[in-house]
Design a binder for these strands. Structure first.
Lengths: 134, 134
DNA sequence: TTTACATACCTAAAAGTGTTATGTATAAGA
DNA sequence: TCTTATACATAACACTTTTAGGTATGTAAA
C-alpha cells in the first residue's frame, strides 16, 4: 500500500503536500492586526507589493508570522477601496507587480492605528502582568 | 417633530438608549484574545463568575476594555466543553451564579496561552518598532 | 525536459470570533 | 414606578482569516 501511494504521489506531483505553507501562526491573537501591520510597513518603506509584504513580515519576525495570501490580497483591496492605499502597476521581468503606498488620508490613519496598537499592547500587558502596575 | 420623538421616547422608556454599553473597544485588535484573558484571570483568582469577569476586566483596564456578554458566555461554555474549565453553580442573594475555575488540563494550557501572548506581543513590537531590534 | 521551486497575482467556501440586539429574572435605590 | 445593577442566556449578523484552490512566468535541478 505504501508503494502504491508513493507511486500515485510521484505521478501527480505535489499531491498531499500543501502548496501554501504560509499562515499567520497558530494562535488567534493575530486576528485583527493585519491592517495595522500592512500600514506600518508601507509607512516605513514608502511602497511595497503584496508578495514583498509577506516576505518582509516573515523576515522581520524570523518566521514567527506568515501572512496568508488569502488574507493579504483582500485586505489590500479593501484598504484601497477605503482610500487608505493607492496602487500602481509595474511590470518587472515580465511579471506583474502591484505597488501599494499610503495616501495622505492613509498616512494620518496610520498614526491612529499605531496608537491603538500601543494601547492594546499596554492593556494586554496590564491584564497578563498586573504586578507591573505598581 | 423633535417634540414628538421625545414624547415617544419617554413613553416607552429606554428606547434608542442601548441597554448594553459594554463592548471590546473599537479596534479589531482584541479579537482572539478573549480566551487568554479569561484563563489568565481564573489562574490568578481561582474561581470567578461571568459577570465578575466583565467587571474585573473593566476595572483592571480602567474602562479601556469592555467584554460583551454575547462574547463572554459562549466563550465560557466553549472552554467548559473543551475541558479547560469546570463550572459550579451557587445561589447568592437569591441570584444564580456560575463559578468557573481551571481544570488541571486548563491550568497547563494556560501556561501555553500566556507564552503565546508574550510571543505575539514581542512580534508585534518588532514590527511596529523595528529600531529596538538592534 | 520534466519537475520543483520561487515569484506574483487572484478568489470562493468555510471556520472562527465578536457585536448587536434581544430575552429572562432578582434586588436596590430614586 | 422607573431605573440601574446584578446575572444568566442566545440568535442574527458582520468581519477577518484559513483553507484550498486557480493562473502565469522564470530558473535551477534531476
Amino acid at each position: 500500500m505504501y508503494k502504491i501511494l508513493m507511486y500515485i504521489c510521484f505521478s501527480i506531483g505535489d499531491c498531499f503536500v500543501p502548496r501554501n505553507d504560509k499562515k499567520m501562526k497558530n494562535s488567534q491573537l493575530y486576528k485583527g492586526s493585519l491592517n495595522t501591520i500592512i500600514m506600518k510597513l508601507l509607512e516605513e518603506n514608502g511602497k511595497m507589493y503584496g508578495y514583498e509584504i509577506t516576505q518582509k513580515v516573515k523576515a522581520i519576525t524570523a518566521g514567527e508570522l506568515n501572512i496568508t495570501e488569502g488574507a493579504l490580497y483582500p485586505a489590500l483591496h479593501k484598504l484601497e477601496a477605503e482610500g487608505i492605499l493607492d496602487v500602481e502597476i509595474e511590470k518587472v521581468d515580465n511579471r506583474m507587480r502591484k505597488y501599494y503606498k499610503l495616501t495622505e488620508a492613509g498616512t494620518k490613519e496610520t498614526v491612529n492605528r499605531l496608537a491603538e496598537l500601543e494601547d492594546f499592547i499596554r492593556t494586554m500587558q496590564s491584564l497578563v502582568n498586573p504586578k507591573l502596575e505598581f
